[in-house]
């Protein structure tokens, strides 16, 4: 019980301390550009009243979902095949490993060239950003499968596609899920960056627009806070999936 109270109380204390420190720092420095916590809350309320807050959140979430899901549907099968077939891995893995360290941000000019200022550009960037961690983790997951599971399944006469469905995929699932969680975090980072440049809605756009259109730093910080909170929510959702019995066996910290 003590640890449960503590796990709430400790971070809450830190948050309160941080907000107080922030408030005092703004007051003592005498700045009239950087907002106090109270001004940020008022700014958020203002955005909510005008209806732009929900609109921008939906726009950002839509782009993330589209690009991310596309990456899931392509990356998982591709990773499974590359993990299973040595030839496929030999052929595609080097290309994957060269593309992987290129920051999605570096793709922004290319995305604008190909897709113009539209929803497609950020969706493409999110797709790219999510694809590499998802594919790589699915591939590694298959390579790490305990050989005894495969041998036992073969012994029971399971082969081909059935082997994939009944053994390879479920055995790889915990590590695939770890990749999915990583990729979602990256996708959320990238959408904000992409929106700052190539579209005119979304939380990234809100931040850059508030800055450009009148130095409204209360709205800039409000946008940042929303991004943090939604990122936390997304991570929580994936963590919920990690408690399922089908994957819990393969994840540490049960």
């Amino acid at each position: 019980m003590r640890s449960k109270v503590e796990s709430l109380l400790l971070p809450l204390t830190v948050a309160v301390g941080f907000i107080c420190g922030w408030h005092l720092a703004v007051r003592w420095s005498g700045t009239d550009i950087f907002p106090t916590p109270k001004e940020v809350v008022l700014g958020t309320v203002e955005l909510a009243r005008k209806g732009v807050l929900i609109k921008y959140i939906v726009a950002s979430l839509f782009r993330v979902s589209a690009g991310y899901l596309l990456a899931v549907f392509i990356g998982i099968p591709a990773g499974l095949l590359m993990g299973w077939f040595g030839r496929a891995r030999m052929a595609f893995n080097p290309a994957l490993q060269v593309l992987r360290p290129i920051s999605p941000i570096a793709w922004i000019p290319v995305a604008i060239l190909w897709f113009g200022v539209s929803d497609l550009a950020p969706i493409f960037l999110i797709f790219l950003a999510s694809l590499f961690p998802i594919t790589t983790s699915a591939m590694a997951a298959v390579q790490n499968i305990q050989i005894n599971y495969i041998r036992a399944a073969r012994n029971f006469g399971i082969t081909g596609l059935e082997l994939f469905r009944k053994v390879v995929f479920p055995a790889a699932l915990p590590q695939i899920l770890t990749g999915l969680r990583l990729a979602l975090g990256v996708a959320w980072l990238v959408v904000v960056a992409a929106e700052m440049i190539s579209v005119n809605s979304g939380l990234g756009y809100l931040i850059i627009d508030a800055r450009n259109a009148g130095k409204r730093y209360d709205l800039v910080v409000a946008g940042m806070a929303m991004i943090g909170l939604i990122g936390l929510g997304l991570d929580w959702l994936v963590r919920r999936m990690e408690t399922l019995d089908e994957v819990r066996w393969g994840l540490s910290g049960r």
């Binding site: 005894n148 599971y149 041998r151 479920p170 066996w249």
Partner: peptide, 9 residues
């Protein structure tokens, strides 16, 4: 097998 090959999922 020696190390259980029971499917954990």
């Amino acid at each position: 097998f020696q190390e259980s090959s029971v499917f954990p999922w």
